[in-house]
C-alpha cells in the first residue's frame, strides 16, 4: 500500500489554498487549507507537505497533480490545470452523481454551475463584479460588527429575528448595518440579515434545478447558511463532505482520470 500511486488536487483560491491527496480508491487521505498569501507557489508547496504528512506518503507516490483556482498556473509541481468551474463540478458530482445545481460561495466570488444527470455541464455563471454575496463581504461585516468571523454562524443560528438589508453593494450594506446598530437591533438579528443577503445575491445569478448542492469555504464555516438557503429555496440543500475542498477534490479526480 505504501507504494500505491496517489493523486493530488491543488485549488489556489484568491483567499485560501486547498490541497487534497486521494488514493486510487478515491478516498481523501490527506488535505490542507491555508491562506493563499502572496507567493502562491510557496503556499502550494507548504500545503502539499502537510497533506503528505497527514497521508503518511512520500512525495514520490504522487502520480499526477492537477491545479485549479485563481493561482492554478503558479503551482510549480502541477502537471495540468483545470478551471475552478470544472473542478467544482467534478468534485460535487463525485458526491452527488445526479442532475445538480451547485452553488459555490468563495472568498471573492460566487459560482452557480448546472450539471445534467450524467455530470455534463449545462452552463455556469460566475460573479466577481463585487464583493456582495461572497466571503469577503461577511469578513468585512464581521470587522464592522466586531464579531470574529468564526462566531458569526452561531449568532445567526440562534437568532429568531432578522433585520432586512436591502442594499446591493458592500459599502451601502455597511451603512445599513450601522443604521441597524444605531437603532438598537440585536447583533444576532443583523448577522442573520447578512446571511440572508448573501443567499439572495447568489440566487439572483441563475435559476436552480431540483437538487441543490452548496460548496465552498463560506458554507464550510457557516453551516447555518446552507440551512437558510434550503428554507429560502424551499428545497433541501446538499452539502458534500469537506465542502471547502470540493474544487481540490475535483482536481485530484481529474488527475486520476487523465493519468
Amino acid at each position: 500500500m505504501a507504494n500505491e500511486r496517489i493523486f493530488a488536487g491543488v485549488d489556489v483560491g484568491s483567499s485560501r489554498t486547498k490541497t487534497v491527496l486521494m488514493d486510487a480508491s478515491k478516498q481523501v487521505i490527506g488535505h490542507d487549507v491555508r491562506h493563499s498569501g502572496t507567493v502562491f507557489s510557496q503556499t502550494a508547496e507548504d500545503g502539499l507537505k502537510v497533506a503528505l504528512d497527514m497521508a503518511k506518503r512520500p512525495r514520490s507516490a504522487i502520480a499526477k497533480t492537477v491545479s485549479t483556482g485563481y493561482g492554478r498556473h503558479n503551482v510549480t509541481f502541477s502537471n495540468a490545470t483545470k478551471t475552478e468551474i470544472a473542478c467544482h463540478a467534478k468534485g460535487s458530482y463525485y458526491f452527488f452523481p445526479k442532475e445538480i445545481a451547485i452553488i459555490d460561495i468563495g472568498g471573492q466570488d460566487n459560482k452557480i454551475i448546472k450539471l445534467d444527470p450524467l455530470g455534463g455541464r449545462r452552463g455556469f455563471k460566475m460573479n466577481r463584479k463585487c464583493a456582495a454575496g461572497t466571503g469577503a463581504f461577511l469578513e468585512e461585516m464581521s470587522l464592522r460588527l466586531n464579531i470574529p468571523l468564526e462566531e458569526m454562524d452561531a449568532h445567526a443560528a440562534q437568532s429568531e429575528d432578522m433585520v432586512k438589508l436591502g442594499s446591493y453593494c458592500t459599502v451601502f450594506s455597511g451603512t445599513e448595518v450601522l443604521e441597524n446598530i444605531r437603532n438598537g437591533e440585536p447583533v444576532a438579528a443583523i448577522i442573520k440579515g447578512l446571511f440572508f443577503s448573501v443567499i439572495k445575491r447568489v440566487l439572483e445569478m441563475d435559476s436552480l434545478s431540483d437538487n441543490v448542492v452548496m460548496t465552498g469555504g463560506v458554507v464550510a464555516h457557516n453551516p447555518h447558511l446552507a440551512e437558510m438557503a434550503a428554507e429560502i429555496i424551499g428545497k433541501p440543500v446538499l452539502v458534500p463532505k469537506l465542502p471547502q475542498f470540493t474544487g481540490a477534490i475535483g482536481a485530484a479526480l481529474y488527475a486520476m482520470d487523465t493519468h
Partner: peptide, 12 residues
Amino acid sequence: QTKTNVEAFIEQ
C-alpha cells in the same frame, strides 16, 4: 474573471 470564464466555457 474573463480568462477563467472563457477557459471554463471552452472546457464545457
